Computed example of a mutant assay.
Amino acid sequence: MSYIGFLSDLEHEPNEPVQYYLPLDRERVPLNPYIGHEIELRYLGEKACCTCGRKAKKLFNNGYCYPCFTKLAECDLCIVKPHQCHYDQGTCRDTEFAESNCMTAHYVYLALSSGIKVGLTRKNRGKARWIDQGAIQAIPIAEVPTRKAAGEMEYFISQHIPDKTDWRKMLAGKVEECDLLEIREQIRSLLPEEYREYLLDDQEIYQFTYPILETLEKIKSLSFDKQEVIKGRLMGIKGQYLILDHAVLNIKKHTGYKIEVVLRPLG
């Protein structure tokens, strides 16, 4: 089977295991049936902005042309540093975007991917966010009314536990075991009074398994910026990564690249 189009982030459904799809323009290629099969991805030399579709020699922030990168609210610094939100100062790039994406309920959560980490996400994107990070477990700490308030709580917690994922350990399956409920209780005891009204008592730990035949002992990253053709046996998928038999490919990093994908059965 062969497909051609501009790449978007891997899409997924939280089944057991997670079901993955590769978006190429209007095509949505199911990948799970091809785990264990040969895959070839060929970069066709074109890039286009994931928002406006403008052709560009270079893309920024995982898929944006330079004008969109400098103008769109979703590319502002406060997206990666939400505690620095400046909506209240009247300097937001797009108030409509802020009202629908930032002035809404957010979870502050704990997730287990390479190790324990704290993060935040819009309430309606919890599972999608955790899968994108390759988490095998996750649990919300609090439900906070705005992204800025969630970012301030996340920043406070990040002084005690990490807020980053080691993607190599995550892909190698080298996960440090821990008790999320116990750690959540420890975090709750540290939080200032101003955050306590947002705390959740839900005991459910969300669990995720990924379609992986084998993990790699040594994680090597591939890029279309260094080679036109990437091919090998598809051994698994986790987070936004395709795991081949010799290296891994971050699909999110290549959003907006035009590629041809060929999927072949073994033999």
Rank of each mutant, 00 (worst) to 15 (best):
C75G: 05
I259G: 00
Y206N: 13
T165H: 06
N15E: 13
L244H: 04
S114H: 10
S100A: 10
P17D: 05
P265M: 03
D88N: 14
D9M: 13
P265N: 06
E96N: 10
L110F: 01
K252S: 02
Q19Y: 11
A150H: 04
S221C: 10
D132H: 10
A135H: 03
I139Y: 00
K148I: 05
H160P: 02
K174H: 12
G53L: 05
K57W: 00
M103N: 08
L171Q: 08
E176Y: 12
L110T: 03
C52Q: 04
T104E: 03
G236H: 06
E38K: 15
C92V: 01
Q89Y: 07
I183R: 05
K231S: 14
M235G: 06
K148W: 02
M153Y: 03
G151L: 02
K226C: 10
T215Y: 04
A172P: 07
E46R: 15
T146S: 11
C92K: 02
H37D: 15
E143H: 01
L41F: 10
R188K: 15
P162S: 09
L213N: 14
T146N: 04
Y43S: 13
E38Q: 15
V144M: 04
E204L: 12
I259W: 01
I4Y: 03
H37A: 15
L171D: 08
L171M: 12
P67C: 10
I141E: 01
Q19R: 14
G236W: 08
I139P: 00
G90I: 10
H254Y: 00
L191Y: 01
D201A: 15
C102W: 01
P211D: 06
D166L: 09
E11D: 08
A56R: 06
I79H: 00
G45H: 11
C92M: 01
I237V: 13
N124G: 05
Q240S: 09
H12P: 04
V262K: 12
E143C: 09
A128E: 13
T146C: 08
G115K: 14
S223W: 08
D179I: 14
V118C: 07
Q19S: 15
P140N: 02
T165A: 09
V18T: 14
R233T: 15
E260D: 01
A247T: 03
L7V: 09
G63L: 08
M103S: 05
E74H: 06
C178D: 00
K117E: 10
A128Y: 05
I219K: 13
T51N: 12
R264S: 06
C92D: 03
M170N: 07
P23T: 07
K218D: 14
H37I: 04
E176D: 14
A56T: 09
L59V: 06
C75S: 11
G173L: 08
Y241P: 00
K71M: 07
L171S: 11
G239V: 08
N61H: 11
Q84N: 12
L222R: 15
G36Q: 13
R147E: 02
G134W: 05
D88M: 13
L191A: 05
I205K: 02
K226P: 00
R125C: 07
C50K: 15
K47R: 15
P140W: 03
H246P: 00
L199W: 03
P17R: 08
E152S: 07
L22F: 11
S158M: 08
T255I: 01
P30I: 14
L190C: 06
K252L: 03
D245I: 11
Y206K: 14
Q84D: 10
K231M: 11
K258T: 00
Y34Q: 12
